[in-house]
Write a protein that binds this DNA or RNA. Sequence first.
DNA 1: TAGGCCATCTGGTCCT
DNA 2: AGGACCAGATGGCCTA
Length: 323
Amino acid sequence: MSLPPNVVQDNMLALPFDKTPSTRSSSPFRTSWAANQLVQSVKPEPGRAQEESEREDEERDGEEEEDEEEQAEGLKIRGPYKKRLSQARLDRVRLRRIEANARERNRMHGLNNALDSLRKVVPCYSKTQKLSKIETLRLAKNYIWALSEILRTGKRPDLLTFVQTLCKGLSQPTTNLVASCLQLNIRSFMSESGEESFSLYPAYQYHHGPEGVGSSSADSGRPLRPFGSFCGPYKALYDSPSPDCSSSLDAVTLSPPINFNGIFALKHEDSVDYRSCHYGLRYCSIGQGSSAELGPYDVHLRDQFYQVQEKSNKSFQSHTGGD
DNA sequence: TAGGCCATCTGGTCCT
DNA sequence: AGGACCAGATGGCCTA
């Protein structure tokens, strides 16, 4: 298993000490340098230095005892009492700091791994063009919301609306990425939405105010702008009588890592029981009977969904030069 | 060069 | 006491 370049292992503490902070060029080295400084301070030099250190310890311990005695008697308290640490205690504190740093690094790595996992299941996953942490979280939130809306309404949205939902609150570069992943032409997107500036959410802002997605329609009781009411040039894609929706999108130039098409599929021979669907439990309870209202469309089970996504991601990466 | 993003260190707080 | 979690600080890298 290969570690990411920024991973700092415990044995990196043994990296050469002769580097100065100014020559540090990457995070791992910065870490090891700092850790080495600490290690050096923890490990006293042998010989004379150690003797001096021990003598200082004795002196310090002596002072410490004096201070404690004075405090106990309530006499001659000079300023705030601060217990002095012996060298041994100091070393132990430093060692604990190093260990805590290592744990913190591992914790953050775990967090980043989880974030990477999240990146892979939201639309537009690409190894070469990684979404930032904040954009990943925002996109994931929008994606969950969009999916829950689909389940709640039992209707499929048109592509434009779907992209609008996904891009709510995202930066323009990420918006462009999502739009391109979904084969959406930004210019036609802008002209259709009738916005001079690049605002993706006129409809949602109208219904939900500036917070848009943040306030769910379920809470407000006000329905969203109905999915499918804004089909534009992509309507044809979803009006295709073909039982294989992906074949329509495959005809477009790129085969992006889109989930839009992966979400939908014509109803399978074996109908999906949402109540047994792992992640569908919550949503099934939201839309009572919604599964019956889905009409000819259905939602992929988790496995099916991942298969579609993995396939499309691979295709996208091959187009974008991703490995 | 400024700004965004990121990894890491660090001290504080809370919990076991 | 020690670990997990958190937020602030810091500095490096990258891009417009």
